[in-house]
């Protein structure tokens, strides 16, 4: 077993929270040329081959793979404001190691969708680098729809300069090992980082979610809002950290995770971490898990909705509030349909 996705600060060893463990053999894959993808972009967006090596902070082992065995490497540069949505769809029909470096130039703004889906049980090791220069804005939606016995390791690194805003939406429908790492740095003053995330775990899925926002700039904002839906024997380990560094005056930050457990056998581990080295900040975090409110259920049932439907409806209501942050209506509807399917397969 190897340890990946180390938590930003270590705490008691006994609960398996500091690392995510995987079998090293999982990494032994053959990576052929990867061609089953589609890119849609307009002229303002340059999509080019990537000429540098980018490390993968998830673990040494995965980093070596990203640097030496990547079978999809691109650099995408948004020079100006692009009205159209740039879209990359990966049909993960063979093992994929992708490295994508995205730069949003000064004053540019962009919308981007990355979709990963597989019909077979597949291996994916992805690195996504996001750089926002000054006064830039990027809206990005990342969708993981992998077949249930897949292994999905994703590492996202973002750097945000003055006055720039990054909005990320991540939806993960879960798989055998689904591990996400996101490390953001708010380097610039008045920069904004907003992360919304939904992840599902069913069967024997094992989810490792590790989000970190390092706050250096003044008057910045960090929002990290996650909803988790667990069923079957799924296990989930969430670590969400905001680290206010000394000097990050007038910054605000809020991390929250809400976990819905549909089965008695699911297991939730949640560690929302708040690190604070600056007096003049406003930091908050929360984590909750609980039964669906009995009064809400009764109200729904008096309107003729069965208990199971009412539970589904209430979950969808919770999710839809978050989903409204997705800029593309078509994608939003597609995701809602997939969620509907997912909830129906649960029950």
């Amino acid at each position: 077993m190897i340890k990946i996705n180390k938590s930003p600060v270590l705490t008691s060893q006994n609960y398996g929270i500091n690392y995510f463990e995987i079998d090293e053999k999982l990494l032994n894959q053959k990576f052929d040329k990867f061609e089953t993808y589609k890119i849609k972009n307009d002229q303002n967006v340059k999509v080019e081959a990537l000429n540098k090596k980018i490390s993968n902070p998830m673990s040494n082992e995965l980093s070596i793979q990203s640097q030496n065995q990547a079978n999809f490497q691109k650099q995408i540069v948004f020079e100006n404001t692009s009205k159209d949505i740039t879209n990359i769809k990966f049909d993960v029909s063979r093992p994929l190691v992708d490295v994508i470096d995205i730069v949003v130039k000064k004053d540019a703004s962009a919308k981007l969708i990355l979709e990963y889906s597989s019909n077979e049980n597949m291996y994916h090791n992805g690195v996504l680098n996001l750089t926002l220069e000054k006064d830039a804005e990027l809206d990005i939606v990342i969708l993981y729809n992998m077949k249930n016995s897949s292994n999905n390791f994703v590492s996202i690194n973002s750097n945000i300069d003055n006055n720039s805003q990054l909005n990320i939406f991540i939806i993960d429908f879960g798989c055998q090992n689904s591990v996400q790492r996101l490390e953001n740095s708010l380097n610039g003053d008045y920069s904004v980082f907003s992360l919304n995330s939904i992840y599902f775990g069913s069967n024997t899925d094992n989810l490792g979610i590790n989000y970190l926002s390092n706050v250096f700039g003044k008057s910045t904002q960090t929002y990290m809002n996650s909803i988790c839906v667990l069923d079957g024997h799924a296990k989930k380990n969430f670590v969400g950290t905001i680290d206010f560094k000394q000097g990050s005056k007038k910054s605000v930050g809020d991390v929250s995770e809400n976990c819905i457990m549909l089965s008695k056998t699911a297991k939730s581990l949640s560690t929302p971490i708040l690190l604070c080295g600056e007096e003049d900040v406003d930091g908050k975090h929360s984590s909750s898990l609980g039964k669906i409110d009995e009064d809400e259920l009764f109200y729904m049932m008096t309107r003729g909705i069965s208990k199971q439907d009412a539970i589904k409806l209430l979950i969808k209501a919770k999710l839809s509030k978050l989903l409204n942050n997705i800029f593309d209506e078509q994608l939003r509807e597609k995701i809602k349909e997939r969620i509907e399917d997912k909830l129906n397969e649960h029950r």
Binding site: T11, P272, L275, V281, S288
Partner: peptide, 25 residues
């Protein structure tokens, strides 16, 4: 410095759990 590092391990769905933390001046 003021840090909050809570671990919440829950293996039962028929429960009510909430954790809230704040830091500031």
């Amino acid at each position: 410095k003021s840090d909050t590092i809570p671990v919440n391990k829950i293996a039962c769905n028929d429960i009510t759990f909430s954790h809230e933390a704040k830091v500031g001046k």
